[in-house]
């Protein structure tokens, strides 16, 4: 009984702030400042406002496009690297791991400011590529670690059996290991997507216009842009829109996400 109460409290803890921003996004007119949790009239007004605004729709397109591209490339590269790290013996393996660890430790802001200077010089400032590249290098360590942890759990005897049967190392990788590793790769993809989707620092430092600005950065600029007379409720609506993909992924894949987050962290 005690645990049930605890469980209900935890669920409330997790979703009340989300419900609050959802509720705020449905308020209109005087309701916005009524300071109560729920609107008196539920209105789609704010959603119409944000979807009618180029500022938001282009940002949404940027976010979706850049996140998907960065996630895909990152996971492909990380899969290859994690395989090599967990399976093959080659000089410099520790160097790869060390660099990955150093990147996760290094403050993003400390990378973003020099990149700001560099990108302006070589013309990558305010472009999709200019954001995808840092997304890639910042999400790679994460994917490499998650995948290497998964790869350690794979029954490698099967690969050896394939090699005994005459398969090359590459064939053994592609035919035997890829199908076994697919669930891990998928989990790494979800976690990478979360990380990239969440980016704010690169988004505000490396863009100056709608050309490449992702949603989190665009949200912060809603205020200054004074496109809306009253930006609070539209910001709430935009915030809800970008939270939907997160909630959908969590609902569908909670088991995989939990496994990916904790695998290796504790065993290592």
């Amino acid at each position: 009984m005690f645990w049930i109460v605890g469980a209900i409290l935890i669920i409330a803890y997790a979703i009340i702030p989300v419900l609050w921003i959802v509720s705020l996004s449905f308020k209109e007119g005087d309701d916005i400042t009524n300071k109560s949790f729920l609107p008196t009239v539920w209105s789609w007004e704010n959603y119409r406002t944000v979807f009618a605004s180029d500022l938001f729709t282009t940002a949404l397109r940027n976010s979706i496009g850049m996140s998907l591209i960065a996630t895909t490339i990152s996971v492909v590269l990380a899969t290859l690297a994690a395989y090599a790290i967990s399976r093959l013996n080659f000089p410099g393996k520790r160097l790869v791991l060390g660099v990955a660890l150093a990147i996760t430790v290094f403050p993003v802001i400390a990378i973003a400011t020099p990149l700001f200077n560099l990108w302006r010089t070589i013309g990558l400032y305010d472009t999709w590529l200019g954001l995808i590249i840092p997304y890639l290098s910042y999400s790679l360590p994460l994917s490499v670690y998650v995948l290497a942890a998964f790869f350690r759990e794979i029954p490698w005897e099967m690969e050896q059996a394939a090699q005994v049967d005459g398969a090359t190392a590459w064939q053994a990788f592609r035919r035997v290991i890829v199908p076994l590793a697919a669930p891990g790769v998928f989990t790494a993809a979800i976690l990478t997507f979360f990380a990239v989707w969440n980016d704010f620092v690169f988004g505000i430092t490396l863009t100056s216009s709608e050309a490449a600005r992702p949603v989190p950065a665009a949200l912060a600029f809603f205020q200054g842009a004074s496109q809306f007379s009253q930006p609070t409720a539209p910001i709430a609506a935009a915030a809800v829109v970008v939270t939907i993909p997160v909630v959908v992924l969590v609902l569908l894949f909670q088991r995989k996400i939990v496994a990916g987050l904790t695998n290796g962290a504790v065993k290592g």
Partner: peptide
């Protein structure tokens, strides 16, 4: 339900 619920704050954008 518990695990799903607590993953929402984890996954949500920090800015949001």
């Amino acid at each position: 339900a518990l695990r799903t619920a607590i993953l929402v704050p984890y996954g949500i954008i920090t800015v949001v």
